[in-house]
Design a binder for these strands. Structure first.
Length: 499
RNA sequence: GGUCGGAUGGCCGAGCGGCUAGGCAGAGGUCUGCAAAACCUCGUACACCGGUUCGAUUCCGGUUCCGACCUCCA
């Protein structure tokens, strides 16, 4: 029977059957990047995780509105709501307009996302483009008595809020009393009634480059606010899915919930999903630790961690081999292994349309037939089990073996019944291309000229081989090898691939 | 210090109360002019100590180590 999609909900700490509020529509919000510097690989992992979520939901037939914001203001450099805005700081350092910073890194971000073959979101709203909505939300929270103004800044009153909404802290597993009794020596907390309170509007210091007029001061919105305002605007006061990296659970997402409840009285999100961190040498890869590798450094091989370049699709495949809720450690050897495995998968994908057609309705090898059917089912069961892409890939490799065996005549063409054969033809590419978002990104892929030239060369070589002219045949093979093209002789003729 | 999570074969990484993960590397075989590719077979791994159980890598308790969050990060 059809199994149902189950999603691990961070809020309840368990897998839950996914039931959208208004099927077939699904609202999905993912916290996007703060565009003050290049995206690093850890960011990419999160966005790739939710790209697969998005793709799978589409594959299942849902009409998904996928909103992923661009944070271009409000994200402060240091703790205690006191540091400089990250974008403003970058602008000051580089002596350019803040919006130039934003544009530059937004462009870079989109380029990397494109290389990694992630689908663009349905809406990609910016914080600066939604000042009105954010100011309105601040006002509403003030009206509801859950925030207070001090010297032109507005702070969310966590103490008061927790009295009305006992779930504060649940998402991130915090005990409210601990938060309230935070004894750490934070600088300049005097404006806040309580250290746990957080800014939703901040008065701009005179030297601040980014500021807007508001009822309270010329200033800028708090970091958490834009997600609340924009998710509400585009997905409604309550929506289905919200994703982000684990490190956003607290304080970002916890405060997002607080703002929504404080504004609209409703917990905004039905299913909270959090991707785990990427590590390198066992440590979290993060901008602040200075151990991050930029995507293009990985793609070009120009970095201190890897011995060779890795293509965007190799990286994508590598990441999908690990479940999104596990940490993933980046290493050179692991990537090398992934690169080979990925090529294997791509090779089968390429052979699939060339398989001899089975015209028989019934399989001559029922066990093989059943295995293919079972594995196709397993793919969906595994993806339905909280998007277990690692297991789905294992299933795909099982099918890959059958495809190769059929192609190389190690299984007879009529081994599978027609239904099974057709199912294999549709499921295998659909999962790889549509759901996992993988594609052959070698230089020769989809290059008609290369195909034509190689066809010519391999025909000449076949003639030589037919005449047992091994010298000519081997020269062709060796010269191609120097060009990193591998020639594979099989019973069905010769194929080639870029190394 | 508080909270939470993890420790799997040579490497990476799934998973589960008893039955094959998968990829990479390695061994043997089939095929092949040779090579490559492909296919078949193989290693019997689950940090340590107790407990529950007919049976635990999987559940419970403890120990050690590692990591994350608590403060900007996806």
């Amino acid at each position: 029977m059809e199994s149902k999609l189950k999603i691990y909900n961070t809020f309840s700490r368990q897998k839950e059957v996914f039931e959208p509020l208004n099927p077939p529509f699904v609202g999905m919000y993912v916290c996007g990047p703060t565009v003050y510097s290049d995206v690093h690989l850890g960011n990419c992992r999160t966005f790739m995780t939710f790209d697969v979520v998005y793709r799978y939901l589409l594959h299942l037939g849902y009409k998904v509105r996928y909103v992923r914001n661009i944070t271009d203001v409000g994200h402060l450099e240091s703790d205690a709501d006191e540091g400089e805005d990250k974008i403003a700081k970058k602008a000051r350092l580089e002596q350019i307009e803040p919006m130039e910073v934003v544009q530059r890194y937004t462009n870079g971000f989109r380029e990397v996302m494109h290389l990694l073959n992630t689908l663009p979101p349905s809406i990609e709203p910016t914080a600066t483009g939604h000042l009105m909505e954010q100011i309105a939300m601040v006002q509403k929270i003030l009206d509801n008595g859950l925030a207070y103004e001090k010297n032109g800044s507005v702070y969310f009153d966590v103490v008061k809020f927790t009295q009305q909404y006992p779930h504060y802290g649940k998402l991130s597993g915090k005990v409210v009393d601990d938060l309230l009794q935070e004894s750490r020596d934070l600088k300049k907390q005097d404006e806040k009634n309580n250290p746990a309170d957080f800014a939703i509007w901040m008065k701009a210091a005179p030297e601040h480059l980014m500021h807007w007029q508001s009822p309270w001061s010329v200033g800028f919105p708090g970091w958490h606010l834009e997600c609340s305002a924009m998710s509400t605007k585009y997905l409604g006061e309550q929506f289905d899915l919200h994703g982000g990296g684990m490190d956003l659970q607290f304080p970002h997402h916890e405060n997002e919930i607080a703002q929504n409840v404080g504004c609209c009285g409703t917990a905004p999100v039905r299913y909270w999903m959090h991707g785990n961190m990427l590590t390198i040498n066992g440590q979290k890869m993060s901008k602040s630790l200075g151990n991050s590798v930029l995507p293009h450094e990985l793609f070009t091989g120009q970095n201190n961690f890897m011995s060779q370049p890795y293509s965007p699709m190799t990286v994508r495949f590598f990441m999908l081999q690990t479940h999104y809720r596990s940490t993933l450690d980046f290493s050179d050897t692991a990537l090398q292994a992934a690169e080979k495995g990925f090529k294997r998968l791509m090779n089968s994908l390429q052979l699939l349309p060339q398989l001899p057609h089975a015209s028989n309705t019934h399989p001559t090898l029922p066990d093989e037939d059943k295995m293919v059917q079972d594995t196709c089912n397993a793919i969906y069961e595994h993806l339905n089990d909280d998007f277990n892409t690692a297991m789905a890939l294992a299933d795909l490799f099982e099918l890959s073996g059958k495809i190769n065996a059929l192609y190389h005549k190690q299984l007879p063409p009529d081994a599978l019944g027609l239904d099974t054969f057709n199912r294999l033809q549709s499921v295998f590419p659909a999962i790889i291309l549509d759901v996992l978002g993988l594609k052959d990104d070698t230089a020769a892929a989809n290059n008609q000229l290369a195909d034509g030239l190689m066809g010519l060369i391999l025909d000449l070589r076949s003639d030589a081989r037919a005449k047992k002219d091994w010298a000519t045949s081997d020269i062709i093979r060796d010269r191609l090898k120097n060009l990193k093209i591998v020639v594979k002789d099989g019973k069905e003729g010769t194929t080639w691939a870029v190394e």
